[in-house]
Design a protein around this nucleic acid. Structure first.
Length: 894
RNA sequence: GGGCGAUUAGCUCAGCUGGUUAGAGCGCCUGCCUUACAAGCAGGAGGUCCACGGUUCGAGUCCGUGAUCGCCCACCA
C-alpha cells in the first residue's frame, strides 16, 4: 500500500467515517459478564452519562463533560476494564411541557383544550421528532457510550421503578402529603422545589403601614412590609414578647385597613425588635415564616391569590387584579386614607422560577413531600466515611453545608408530562398509594377512585437512575455487576439537583447491596466553560460557542484536546479558539509525522512497521532515549488520568510528542532513514513502534486521528478492530534508561548552546562553522560518539576538542560541564551587543550573590537537603565561569 | 447574612507535599520555503508571582490582615 496522505490534516475527511464505524461495529457495547466467564474476572468500570434533557441541544458544557467522560472511559477500556458508559435522556418535565405548549399556542390551541391524554400523545410525538438531537451530536463526536443500553426516563421499566420507589417511601413514612407553603410559579402554574428557585438581588421598597387599634382608632401600630398587597390576607400582627413598646398591646385587636377585618396583636419571637417598628404583619397563606407563626397561634390562613397570582374573591375590592397591580392599588388606597406611614428603599433577594424567571409566589397548597432528614443523615455519612469521594475534595464541604440545612423536598408538580403520582383519591377523602390502580376504595368501597393528577419532580426519577437503569427492583445480574457505578462526572450546577439526590436515594434503596450502597464511588466535578473573555455563555449575550461549529472548523480532536488541556480542577475554562487552533496544529503535526514515516516506508519498500527492531538498533543512544522517555511519559499520563488531571495528562503527551519525538527524535534518525536499506528498515521499525505506542497513548484524547493513522500503519491488517480496543501503554521499568536520558540531555543542551551562539553571532544559516568544545573526558567521549548528530542538528562543520582544563577544575562534579566556542568572525552591532551583555552580567551577578549568600549561611548548609545544597554549589561554579566569559566578552567589545 | 474560590508574561492559564535559573499556548521580535509539517523550523524579548505583615536557612507555594473580582447557598418582614 502506498500511503498517499494529503499534506494537511483534514478532520472532516475522516471523522464521520470513524464515528459511524464505531457505532456500526458496536465497539463500545458491553454485554453483562456472566458469572464465571473470563469477562467477569476483569475489573468493572461503570459510568452513567448525566442524561441530557430531551429538549436539549449540545452546548460547550456538555462537550467538556463528555470529553472528560470519554477520555476516562476510553482509557479504562484500553486498560482492560469492562467499561460501561451508559447513555440516556431525561424527560425534563417542565421544559418539555413548555416546549410543546409553545408549539400548541402557535397552532391556536392549548393543552387544556386538548385534554390530558391527547396532550401527552402530542408530547410523545414531539419527542420522537425532535428528542434525539443530543444523541445525534454525541454520535458525531464519537462518544464511546453503549448505545444498545440507551434509556429514556419515561421508559416503562424506569417508570415502574419510580412507582415502586414512591410506594415504598410512602410505606416507610418518608413520603407525606400536606398543605404547606410552597414555591409556586404563577406562569408554569405548578409548585417547584427550593432548588428551582433562583434568588436575585432586587432594589425594592419597604412600606410602613398604619394599622389602627380597634379600641382607639386614632392609635396605630405601624408594620413594615415589602409586599403590601399581601395585607389583604393578614390574620394578625406579631410583636416580640420582650419588646417593651408593645407589652400592653398584646392581645388587643387591630382593624386591618382596606379589608375592614379585625386581627389580633400576638406575641411571637419571630418579630425582631430591631427591624422597622418591631411589629410584623402576619399573612399565613402567603409567606413561609408567617405560615409557621400562624400554626403556632392557630391563625386563619386566608389565601388571597389564585394560581396565576391574581387576587381572588378573598381580596375584596381587589379581586381580579394581578399581584403587582394590586400592590399599586393597595398603596394608593392606603395613601388616600393616610395610612401609609412611609416608604424607603430596601434591597432584598427575590425568588424567581429557574425555568421561566417569573417571580415565585409562596403559595399555600396541598403537595407531596419527601421527609429528607433520615435520607440526608446517611448521605452525609457516606461522604464523611469516604465511601464517596469528591474531586476536587472541597466540594464535599459545599455538599455537607447544604445537606445539613436541607428542607423537605416538594416532589409533586401540577404538570401533565412526567411520572404520575401513584395515589388514588376517593370521594370519601381516602387516599390510596398503590403500585396499580385500586378497583375500589379501601375505606368506603366506592368504585373508581381517581388517580392523583400531579406528576413527580423530574429529579425524582433521575435521582434513582444509578440503580433503576440496571433493572431494579428486579434482582438483576446487571445490578450485581455494575452497581455501584464507579464514577460520576458532572458540573457543580447539578450537585444538589442530582448528585445529592442520587446519594440519598441510592444509599437508601441499595442498603443491602453486597458491594456497598452508594450510587458511585467518586464524583469528579468540573468547572464551567466560559468564553475567551471569561464571560458566562448565554444566548442573551450572544457569546455562545456551539461545539459542533468549532468542531467542524478545527476538528473534534482539537476541540477535545483544548478542553482536556484546560480542564484543571477548580477553575473555570475560558474557551479560546486560539488555543484550539494550536491543537489543530498538533493534530496536523501528528499527521505529518505519519506522512514522514510512510514516505520512508514507501522508499525502503517495506510493508512492516511494527516489531523486529534489531538489538543493534535498540542499543543506539537515541533509541534507548526515546523508549525511556516514552515509557516514562506513559507512566505520567496514566497517573494524570488516575488523578483526573486531564490537563497534566494532555500536556504531558503534547510535549512529548511534539517537543521530543518530533523535534528531536525524528531529526536525529533522519540520516539512518536515508542510509542503507537495512539500516533504514531497522530504524523504521523503532520509529514505528514508538509512533504506534504514542498513538495509543493519545487515543483517548484524540480518538479520530489516532484511529486513522493506526489503521494506516497496519496497512489494513490491524491486530484488532480499533485502536480504542488496543492496550494502553504503561510505565515499564525495563525500558527506563537514566543514563540515556542524561546523555541525551547533555547533547541537547550542547546543541542548543551552539544554535544559540550561531543566532547571536548572526551566522548565515547556510554557513557551517567549526566548533571547539572544552569538556571533561566523559563528555568528549559522548560527543565523539555522536559527532554526526551534533554537527547536523547544531549545523556545525567540525568539532574540535581543545582543552580539558574546565573538566579538571570542576573536580568531582556529577554533571560534567563543557564550554563551546564558535570559530567564526562575528559581525555584530557592538552597541546592542554591549547592552545585552551588560544586562546579562547584572543578572548573573545577582544570581551569583544569592548563591554565595546561601552557601555562606551555616543554617542553610545544616538544614537544607543535600541535593539542594549540591545543586546550588554546582550552579555557583557554573556562574563563575559564565561571569568570567561575559566579562571577557565585554572587555573585548571595548 | 453564611460559605467557597480567584488574583502569576500583552491575552488565556499551569506551577502537585515550600528547595537550584517561575512554565505553556496564543500574541510579539529576528532569521529560515533545511525534500513530514509555514497549521512549520531555529533563536529571542517579555514577570516587583495583588498589597502589607508573619513563619522558615529558604515563600509564587504555608499563616494573618487588607484590596479587587467572581461564584454558590439563604423563609428575617
Amino acid at each position: 500500500m502506498s500511503h498517499e496522505l494529503p499534506k494537511a490534516y483534514d478532520p472532516s475527511a475522516i471523522e464521520l467515517r470513524w464515528a459511524e464505524y464505531w457505532i456500526k461495529e458496536k465497539l463500545f457495547s458491553v454485554a453483562t459478564p456472566e458469572a464465571g466467564s473470563p469477562e467477569a474476572a476483569k475489573p468493572i468500570f461503570t459510568l452513567l452519562l448525566p442524561p441530557p434533557n430531551v429538549t436539549g441541544r449540545l452546548h460547550m458544557g456538555h462537550m467538556l463533560n463528555q470529553t472528560e467522560m470519554d477520555i476516562i472511559m476510553r482509557w479504562r477500556r484500553m486498560r482492560g476494564f469492562v467499561a460501561l458508559w451508559l447513555p440516556g435522556t431525561d424527560h425534563a418535565g417542565i421544559a418539555t411541557q413548555m416546549m410543546v405548549e409553545r408549539q400548541l399556542a402557535g397552532e391556536g390551541t392549548s393543552r387544556q383544550k386538548l385534554g390530558r391524554e391527547a396532550f401527552l400523545a402530542r408530547v410523545w410525538e414531539w419527542k420522537k421528532l425532535y428528542g434525539g438531537a443530543i444523541q445525534a451530536q454525541m454520535k458525531r463526536l464519537g462518544a464511546s457510550v453503549d448505545w444498545d443500553r440507551e434509556y429514556f426516563t419515561m421508559d416503562d421499566n424506569l417508570s415502574r421503578a419510580v412507582t415502586e420507589v414512591f410506594v415504598r417511601l410512602h410505606e416507610q413514612g418518608l413520603i407525606y402529603r400536606g398543605m404547606y407553603i410552597v414555591n409556586w410559579c404563577p406562569r408554569c402554574m405548578t409548585a417547584i422545589s427550593d432548588l428551582e428557585v433562583v434568588h436575585e438581588d432586587y432594589a425594592g421598597k419597604l412600606y410602613q403601614i398604619k394599622y389602627p387599634l380597634v379600641d382607639s382608632p386614632t392609635q396605630f401600630v405601624i408594620v413594615a412590609t415589602t409586599r403590601p398587597e399581601t395585607m389583604l390576607g393578614d390574620s394578625a400582627v406579631a410583636v416580640n414578647p420582650k419588646d417593651p413598646r408593645y407589652k400592653n398591646l398584646v392581645g388587643k385587636k387591630l382593624r386591618l385597613p382596606l379589608m375592614d377585618r379585625e386581627i389580633p396583636i400576638i406575641a411571637d419571637d419571630f418579630a425582631d425588635p430591631q427591624f422597622g417598628s418591631g411589629a410584623v404583619k402576619v399573612t399565613p397563606a402567603h409567606d413561609p415564616n408567617d405560615f409557621q407563626i400562624g400554626l403556632r397561634h392557630n391563625l386563619p390562613q386566608i389565601t388571597v391569590m389564585d394560581e396565576q397570582a391574581r387576587i381572588n374573591q378573598n381580596g375584596g375590592a381587589y379581586a381580579g387584579l394581578d399581584r403587582y397591580e394590586a400592590r399599586e392599588r393597595v398603596l394608593r388606597d392606603l395613601e388616600e386614607r393616610g395610612l401609609l406611614a412611609g416608604t424607603k428603599d430596601h434591597g432584598y433577594a427575590i425568588g424567581k422560577c429557574d425555568r421561566c424567571r417569573t417571580i415565585v409566589e409562596p403559595r399555600l397548597s396541598t403537595q407531596w413531600f419527601i421527609k429528607i432528614q433520615p435520607l440526608a443523615d446517611r448521605a452525609i455519612e457516606a461522604v464523611e466515611k469516604g465511601e464517596i469521594k469528591f474531586i476536587p475534595e472541597n466540594y464535599a464541604k459545599t455538599y455537607f453545608e447544604w445537606m445539613r440545612n436541607i428542607h423537605d423536598w416538594c416532589i409533586s408538580r401540577q404538570l401533565w408530562w412526567g411520572h404520575r403520582i401513584p395515589a388514588w383519591h376517593c370521594q370519601c377523602g381516602e387516599i390510596m398509594v398503590a403500585r396499580t390502580a385500586p378497583q375500589k376504595c379501601s375505606k368506603c368501597g366506592n368504585s373508581r377512585p381517581a388517580q392523583d393528577t400531579d406528576v413527580l419532580d423530574t429529579w425524582f426519577s433521575s435521582g434513582l437512575l444509578p440503580f433503576t437503569v440496571f433493572g431494579w427492583p428486579e434482582k438483576t445480574r446487571d445490578l450485581d455487576v455494575f452497581y455501584p457505578t464507579s464514577l460520576l462526572i458532572t458540573g457543580f450546577d447539578i450537585l444538589f439537583f442530582w448528585v445529592a439526590r442520587m446519594i440519598r436515594l441510592g444509599c437508601h434503596f441499595m442498603a443491602d447491596h453486597p458491594q456497598g450502597n452508594v450510587p458511585f464511588r467518586e464524583v469528579y466535578i468540573h468547572a464551567l466553560v466560559r468564553d475567551a473573555e471569561r464571560q458566562k455563555m448565554s444566548k442573551v449575550k450572544g457569546n455562545v460557542i456551539d461545539p459542533i461549529v468549532v468542531t467542524e472548523k478545527y476538528g473534534t480532536d482539537a476541540v477535545r484536546f483544548t478542553l482536556a488541556s484546560m480542564a484543571s480542577p477548580g477553575t473555570d475554562i475560558a474557551f479560546s479558539e486560539s488555543r484550539t487552533e494550536g491543537y489543530r496544529a498538533f493534530a496536523n503535526k501528528i499527521w505529518n509525522a505519519a506522512r514522514f514515516m510512510f514516505m520512508n516506508l514507501d522508499r525502503v519498500g517495506d510493508a512492516s512497521l511494527i516489531g523486529g527492531a534489531t538489538d543493534a538498533q535498540l542499543n543506539k543512544l537515541e533509541n534507548r532515549w526515546i523508549y525511556s522517555r516514552f515509557y516514562r511519559v506513559a507512566g505520567e499520563v496514566n497517573q494524570g488520568l488516575a488523578d483526573y488531571r486531564f490537563d497534566e495528562a494532555a500536556n504531558t503527551i503534547y510535549k512529548f510528542f511534539w517537543g521530543e519525538f518530533c523535534d528531536w527524535y525524528l531529526e536525529i534518525i533522519k540520516p539512518s532513514l536515508s542510509g542503507p536499506p537495512d539500516e533504514a528498515k531497522s530504524a523504521l521499525r523503532v520509529l514505528g513502534e514508538v509512533f504506534e505506542g504514542s498513538l495509543r497513548l493519545l487515543s483517548p484524547f484524540m480518538p479520530f486521528i489516532t484511529e486513522e493513522v493506526w489503521h494506516a500503519m497496519y496497512d489494513g491488517k490491524p491486530p484488532g478492530k480499533s485502536i480504542a480496543l488496543a492496550p494502553y501503554p504503561e510505565l515499564e521499568q525495563r525500558w527506563l534508561d537514566d543514563q540515556a536520558e542524561a546523555q541525551m540531555a547533555v547533547l541537547q543542551d550542547l546543541i542548543e548552546k551552539v544554535r544559540n551562539m550561531r543566532a547571536e553571532m548572526k551566522v548565515e544559516p547556510k554557513v557551517k562553522t567549526p566548533v571547539q568544545i572544552h569538556a571533561a573526558e566523559e563528555i568528549r567521549a559522548l560527543v565523539a560518539a555522536n559527532t554526526g548528530m551534533v554537527e547536523r542538528l547544531a549545523n556545525v562543520s567540525g568539532i574540535e576538542f581543545v582543552d580539558k582544563s574546565l573538566a579538571q577544575a570542576a573536580g568531582a562534579r556529577t554533571t560534567p560541564k563543557y564550554e563551546v566556542v564558535l570559530v567564526y568572525e562575528q559581525k555584530i552591532d557592538v552597541a546592542a551587543e554591549r547592552e545585552r551583555m551588560t544586562k546579562e552580567l547584572a543578572k548573573l551577578e545577582n544570581e551569583r550573590a544569592n548563591a554565595s549568600r546561601q552557601l555562606g549561611n551555616e543554617q542553610f548548609l545544616a538544614k537544607a537537603p543535600a541535593a539542594v545544597v549540591e545543586g546550588i554549589r554546582r550552579r555557583s561554579g557554573e556562574l563563575d565561569s559564565l561571569l568570567e566569559k561575559v566579562k571577557t566578552a565585554l572587555a573585548k567589545l571595548g
